[in-house]
Simulated assay, not measured.
Amino acid sequence: MDSISLKALAKINIGLDVTGIRDDGYHEVRMIMQTVNLFDKLTIKKTADGSITMSTNLKFLPVDSDNLCIKAAELLIKEFGIKEGVHIDLEKHIPVAAGMAGGSTDAAAVLFGVNKLFNLKLSKKDMMERGVKIGADVPYCIMRGTALAEGIGEILSPLPPMIKCPVLIAKPGISVSTKQVYQSLDACFDTVKHPDIDGLISDIKAGDLKSLCNNMGNVLEEVTIPLHPIIADIKANMMENGAVGAMMSGSGPTVFGFFDDNKKAKSAKEALTKTGMVKQLYLTTIFNNKN
């Protein structure tokens, strides 16, 4: 095998709670992570000269060691003393810096691809243990599906698959500073409303979409939305157009909406398009490991 083509799937947070701040500055979290069928495409090819290079369809993305894809390839090639190199071509569709683990899922795909290309025989667990060295979300992006993430996001517990439903994903044309969001949260940590993560887990086990949407919560909305009110406007538009529930993913600014009917979801997509509030808009579905 000289090349491999892969899909790197995005994630959303059905629930996101921050439970504390560690002495090293990292935040303790409890999050429910969910993979969706929105993906980047990667092609990884062996190169004879030992170089690790990269190309992408987005000119503003780094293609050097600042990119997690390069870091992932370097990690395995160095560890296993591989003499050949790789070229990674990334076709980016997942919104960038949008709370959807786009960079982490690309890195996870590279770990998977290099493992296959060079027959390293690493298990999923092996790759997850290496992935955390690249980023806290990388192990989850290797696992995929529905999972509870704790610690700084690296302690993962698989959950039963979430009910499959249409998902509308919308990113406005703004950027959010994750650092600024967490600094704002720190300043009001004692007064924010924390979501019921255990209740959400019960809803997932029961397959109850309506109850899940009623219980969804993201503690970071309380600080991100005042900084970027358009997020609340997008949520409201989705709800007005038939979403069972809508919420910001991660630290934002991406908003997702769950629908119980594909026709409603398509109509909501058309309505949101007309507002001009969003730069990227996708209608997709829930992914689970039984897909």
Rank of each mutant, 00 (worst) to 15 (best):
N237E: 10
L281N: 01
I12M: 07
L120E: 13
T273L: 07
S51P: 09
C213D: 00
M162Y: 14
L156I: 03
I88G: 10
I231G: 04
Y140L: 08
G257H: 01
D137S: 05
L42V: 04
P253W: 07
M238G: 10
I231K: 03
V181E: 04
P158H: 14
K41Y: 14
I14C: 11
D24Q: 01
T56L: 03
A8I: 03
N291T: 15
F287D: 10
I169Q: 08
T224H: 08
F189L: 14
P166N: 12
M128G: 02
M216E: 02
A108T: 00
L272Q: 00
M128R: 11
K116T: 14
F256P: 06
E91I: 06
V132F: 09
T56M: 01
P253Q: 11
L209F: 07
T53L: 10
I4H: 01
F118K: 04
I142C: 04
S65G: 08
G250F: 06
T35A: 03
Q180R: 13
I155V: 11
S55E: 07
A187I: 05
T275D: 00
E91Y: 05
S184L: 11
D186I: 08
V63T: 13
A271D: 03
K205H: 07
S184I: 04
K46G: 02
V255R: 08
A271Q: 02
G245K: 00
G242C: 13
E240V: 00
S51K: 06
L76A: 04
K179I: 03
I286M: 00
C69G: 15
K264A: 02
D24F: 12
T285V: 02
A232E: 03
L159N: 02
K164G: 09
T285P: 04
H27V: 09
I234H: 14
L272D: 03
L283K: 07
T35S: 14
L6C: 03
N13Y: 06
H27G: 10
P253K: 14
G131C: 06
D233R: 11
N291Y: 15
K290Q: 06
L9K: 13
T284A: 15
M1A: 00
H228A: 13
N218S: 13
A10V: 01
V176F: 04
E91P: 05
M247E: 14
C141E: 00
N262S: 11
M54K: 07
C213L: 01
K83P: 08
T224I: 06
S51L: 07
A107M: 06
P229Q: 11
D208F: 07
K205D: 13
K279S: 06
A170H: 04
G131S: 07
T105W: 00
H93E: 15
A149H: 09
D40G: 14
C141Y: 01
T284P: 09
G103D: 03
P62D: 15
K264I: 00
V96C: 12
I32S: 12
E240Q: 13
D23A: 10
K133R: 10
T273C: 08
F258P: 05
Q34H: 06
I169L: 08
I52L: 00
V244R: 13
Y182W: 04
S51F: 03
V278D: 15
V18M: 15
N13V: 07
N218G: 12
L212F: 04
T53H: 11
V29Q: 13
D190H: 06
T19Y: 10
G25F: 11
P229K: 15
G173F: 09
T105C: 01
D208A: 05
D190I: 12
V181S: 07
D137G: 05
V110A: 04
L281V: 00
K124M: 08
I88C: 09
D208W: 11
